[in-house]
Measured scan of single mutants.
Amino acid sequence: NQASVVANQLIPISTHLTLVMMRSEVVTPVGIPAEDIPRLVSMQVNRAVPLGTTLMPDMVKGYA
């Protein structure tokens, strides 16, 4: 099972991601792979992401 990136807190819209905001967890459905966490740092979310939500490629500007 592959770990995905999950929000560690509420991430407001247009926030630049930091390591503190993300954790890796095995979830269904599978989202952005956990090994991409370093790549996600300083990218922006294009919507509010609630605590515990799996980050999907379409939620992060410039990821997909």
Rank of each mutant, 00 (worst) to 15 (best):
L10V: 11
Y63T: 03
T54A: 06
L55H: 01
P29D: 09
A64S: 13
V5Q: 01
K61M: 14
S4C: 05
A7D: 00
V41L: 11
T53C: 08
V5K: 01
I32S: 02
T18H: 05
M22P: 00
T54F: 02
V49K: 02
T54C: 04
L10W: 10
A7M: 04
T15Q: 08
H16K: 13
V20Q: 13
R47M: 13
D36S: 10
A64Q: 15
L10M: 13
R47K: 11
P57T: 05
V5M: 01
R47F: 07
R39E: 06
N1W: 13
R47Q: 08
I13T: 12
Q2G: 15
N1A: 15
I11T: 00
P57N: 05
E35G: 07
S14I: 04
M59K: 01
S42T: 11
M59I: 05
M43K: 10
V49R: 01
L51P: 08
T54H: 01
Q2R: 05
P33V: 08
V5D: 01
I13K: 10
H16A: 15
R23T: 07
R23Q: 04
D58M: 10
V20K: 12
D58W: 10
V27Q: 05
P33Q: 07
A64Y: 06
I37F: 01
I37Q: 05
T18L: 09
M22H: 02
T18E: 12
P29G: 03
P57D: 05
P57V: 06
L17K: 00
L51G: 11
D58K: 07
A3I: 07
V30H: 12
H16Q: 12
N1Q: 12
V20N: 10
V6D: 01
M56E: 07
S24W: 06
R39C: 12
N46T: 10
Y63I: 04
R23W: 04
V20H: 15
T53K: 08
P12F: 04
L19S: 11
R23S: 10
P29C: 08
V60Q: 00
P12K: 08
P33W: 10
A48R: 09
G62C: 12
D36L: 09
E25L: 08
A34G: 15
K61A: 14
T15L: 04
T54V: 10
T53M: 09
P50K: 11
P29K: 05
R23A: 09
A48T: 15
P12H: 09
T53Y: 14
R23M: 06
Q2I: 12
P57G: 07
N46F: 05
A3S: 12
P29M: 05
S24R: 06
P29H: 05
P38R: 08
V20T: 13
V27C: 05
M43N: 04
V27K: 09
I32H: 02
T54W: 00
V49H: 03
V27G: 03
G52Q: 02
V30T: 14
T54N: 02
M56I: 10
A34Y: 08
T15A: 14
R39M: 10
P38A: 11
M21D: 04
V45Y: 00
A34T: 10
S14T: 09
M59L: 04
L19D: 06
T15I: 07
S42P: 00
L17D: 03
I32D: 00
V26H: 12
S4V: 01
I13Q: 13
N1F: 12
N46E: 09
A7S: 12
M43V: 04
I11K: 00
I37G: 03
L55G: 02
G62R: 06
M21N: 09
G62W: 07
P38C: 14
V20Y: 13
L19E: 09
P12L: 06
A34S: 13
M21C: 04
G31P: 01
K61G: 09
I32G: 02
L40N: 00
E25S: 09
S24C: 08
L19N: 08
E25W: 06
A48H: 11
N8Y: 03
L40S: 00
A7W: 01
I37Y: 03
V5N: 01
Y63P: 04
V27A: 08
D58A: 09
V60E: 03
S4R: 02
A3L: 11
D58H: 09
L19C: 13
L55T: 01
V60A: 02
I11P: 00
G52E: 04
A7F: 01
R47E: 11
V20A: 14
I32P: 01
V41Q: 06
M22S: 02
V6W: 02
M21H: 12
I37K: 07
S24F: 06
Y63K: 03
G31R: 02
T15H: 05
M56K: 07
R47C: 09
S4I: 02
V60N: 03
V49G: 00
A48S: 15
P33L: 09
I37D: 00
A3T: 08
S4N: 01
P50S: 13
G31L: 02
A34H: 06
M56A: 07
T18R: 07
A34D: 08
L40G: 00
G62V: 04
K61T: 15
N8E: 07
V45M: 05
S4G: 05
G52R: 04
T54I: 08
S42A: 14
D58G: 12
V30Y: 11
P29I: 07
Q9I: 11
N1I: 15
M21G: 02
Y63E: 04
I32A: 02
T18Q: 12
P12Q: 07
V49Y: 03
V41Y: 03
I11V: 05
T28A: 14
